[in-house]
Design a protein around this nucleic acid. Structure first.
Lengths: 243, 243
DNA sequence: ACCTGAACACCGTTCAAGT
DNA sequence: ACCTGAACACCGTTCAAGT
């Protein structure tokens, strides 16, 4: 690419173009198809140049993850809360699966960018509408997103499907009904169901389990206690254990 | 090391010593502290030699994962089923966390080795004791182990804790109560609780959710229907969707 | 036939030498 | 001061040349 005045024109380097190109590579070529060197090459510069905008590969991965989360569409406000919950979580799964290797990133680099914030805020709002107390909801969205990410990571693994089939078949060929009676009995069940069926089942399992385990005793009803929440003092103590 | 007869004696190369050394490196040095080249070097041979025993890095990782799962202690048979369930899952988390990076492996390389089988069989047995129908249990252990693996992956990440603290603090510094009212309100709750508290809560959430969502309608009671299961024909149809 | 040193095609990161 | 080519210290995998 040349400018009309003659001098060669490169896309001006910036965090944004770097992240965009990295995301493009991740989507097109998978997890190990994205690298600092290839991003630099695509941007027609040396690999060292990127370090002016990004501290290391891990930071770039974090930025790419949040960039991807920008594509998660928030649910329509009008619908019932459980429908909105399923919509949002499924949208997240789809985004994480759309770029192979993205879900794998999500474990190493936990998203704390603006788009992750946006999703967390929406999830908390939905659970609030569902009558889930803030104390419960804080842990609940953690659990829900853990499931979403883990599910996406397994699903997105390109070799996963064939591996599972091979592995399960090999497994059952080794499985005698005496040694592993339960596995033997459950064989067909383990392979049954589509991804969507399992996802819907799991979300319902999680939600109903969450509704049964409020962390504040007064919060057992499903009737909304809307707007009763945003009244808390800021700045808490440091995390003690954390998952 | 020399033999008494004079000739230098190397540990004879085998799948087992390779996996053992790789597992040692993974435990000692973390995910990227283990490599084919370093395993070869430790075994005093060239990197090419390993390919006689292992097809590629991925296969080695699968073998290492199953090797690690050998360390998961099965629960005492006498105890109530929910206690055994929590014991087993917690033992699995501990094993996955003990070697940093092991949990990360568990996503790329789903365990179908003998030790994974042993754990799956035990889990199915426990759920059977809990009155969970085989059809439900097959999906349930998938969900439970997804949580265990995902939780371990997050917990084992060495930079995770400081990242979370930094990220959450940075997040809240950007979080105005107008823009993100729910996050603002739930701030202290998000940082609360130890890992063990959250784990116990999550397992109860999952189990009670599972008990509420049987996939066969007749199976709602918690009374055991022991030994009523191992009566199914073998060999099912191929998987359709996968989770 | 089996084994393996050296080579190939990559990495992330650093740093000194240029502008 | 800013930028970057080249170098450094690694990878996984292949293959031809040795025994």
């Amino acid at each position: 690419v040349k400018s009309r005045r003659g001098g060669p024109v490169k896309a001006p380097l910036s965090r944004e173009v770097i992240v965009e190109e990295a995301f493009r590579q991740l989507t097109a070529e998978g997890l190990k198809g994205m690298s600092l060197r290839k991003v630099a090459a695509a941007l027609e510069t040396g690999p060292a140049s990127l370090y002016a905008y990004v501290n290391d590969l891990r930071e770039l991965q974090t930025l790419v993850l949040d960039r991807a989360l920008a594509n998660v569409k928030l649910p329509q406000p009008g619908r019932p809360w459980r429908e909105r919950l399923a919509q949002l979580l499924y949208a997240e799964v789809e985004v994480l699966c759309a770029s192979p290797g993205l879900a794998q990133l999500a474990f190493g680099a936990i998203a704390t960018g603006p788009n992750a914030l946006r999703i967390a805020e929406t999830l908390l709002g939905i659970l609030d509408d569902g009558g889930v107390a803030p104390a419960t909801a804080a842990w609940a969205i953690d659990l829900l997103q853990l499931y979403v990410t883990a599910g996406a990571a397994e699903k997105a693994d390109s070799a996963h499907h064939s591996n599972v089939v091979d592995g399960v078949e090999q497994m059952f060929s080794l499985t005698s009904s005496e040694e592993f009676p339960h596995i033997y009995a459950a064989e067909s069940e383990m392979l049954s169901g589509t991804g969507a069926e399992r996802f819907a089942w799991a979300i319902n399992v999680l939600m109903d389990g969450i509704l049964q385990h409020p962390r504040t005793p007064e919060q057992r009803s499903q009737k909304a206690t809307k707007k009763a929440s945003a009244t808390k003092p800021p700045k808490a103590s440091a995390r003690s254990g954390g998952r």
